[in-house]
Design a protein around this nucleic acid. Structure first.
Length: 263
DNA sequence: ATGGTAGCCTCGCTA
């Protein structure tokens, strides 16, 4: 069995003790991290190498930043999403490890959706990024690798994936344009691992720091593990681990993981 | 229509 986890840590430096403790206990074979909020040379590499991981880090000062950690060597194929002329944001890394292809994705948030009465640059950037992801996913799925696209997609796929759908109508995470772009990529043949294993569960991966959202369980399911058909055939389990969200100095996201049978 | 909290880094931006 291969265990693959994804976690938006919202600053790897601020979160380091809690992340290391979770990694020791959960022991994923592959861990996808997002929102590192540091450059590559500031990533706490030794601490993760001591736990037996190989690293592929794409960093940036202050914002964004993604990584793949794996118990086996990683062949890195992409350090950014293709076709992004001038896009310097650290939101994508992809490689091949342990017999599977994996990408760690931090999809743009896109809020606010309106600026000066028209579609904001941020929302336009999100939708353009999603179109690039669609095209790249199409290329990946034309191959035959078991592939896992994991990360913080900043997309609430369906009404049951958020505590208050009406309140999110004008949010970039739930806008029809965003959900349509996500569906278009899913319809290439990807499987939402959590939904496949829990068809009707109302469970979240993110709770806002504001307004006591965690205490009231007012969250959204925006972190996803999307599987190619070859990976979906191997899916044995998938769950969201709520425990880290309740701990001291928590990220506003909590980890999601899945287990794939060995081929 | 706004504000609520957190991280980083400079007192604003992103989320």
């Amino acid at each position: 069995m291969i265990k693959i986890a994804s976690w938006n840590v919202n600053s790897v430096k601020a979160r380091l003790p809690g992340v290391l403790a979770w990694v020791r206990e959960a022991a994923p074979d592959i861990l996808l991290l997002q929102e590192l909020k540091c450059e590559e040379n500031a990533f706490p590499a030794l601490e993760f190498e001591d736990l037996g991981y190989n690293l592929a880090v794409v960093g940036q000062k202050t914002y964004n930043g993604v990584a793949i950690l794996s118990k086996s060597a990683i062949e890195v194929d992409h350090r950014k999403l293709p076709d992004g002329a001038g896009d310097e944001q650290a939101r994508y890394v992809e490689g091949f490890t342990m017999g599977v292809r994996v990408a760690s994705i931090y999809l743009p948030n896109g809020n606010p959706i309106v600026d000066s009465g028209r579609r904001s640059d941020k929302f336009a950037y999100k939708l353009a990024w999603m179109e690039r992801l669609y095209r790249h996913a199409r290329d990946l799925l034309a191959g035959e690798d078991a592939t896992i696209l994991g990360g913080d997609f900043n997309i609430i796929p369906e009404p049951e994936d958020v505590h208050d759908p009406e309140g999110w109508e004008n949010d970039a995470l739930y806008r029809p344009e965003s959900r349509a772009a996500f569906r278009k990529t899913m319809f290439l043949g990807l499987t939402d691992a959590f939904r496949a294993r829990h068809p009707t569960a109302q469970r979240y991966t993110w709770w806002d720091y504001r307004s006591g959202a965690w205490a009231k369980d007012q969250g959204a399911r925006i972190d996803h593990l999307l599987l190619s058909p070859q990976a979906a055939d191997l899916l044995a389990a998938c769950d969201i681990d709520r425990k880290p969200r309740g701990q001291y100095k928590a990220s506003d996201h909590t980890p999601i993981w899945c287990a794939l049978r060995e081929k």
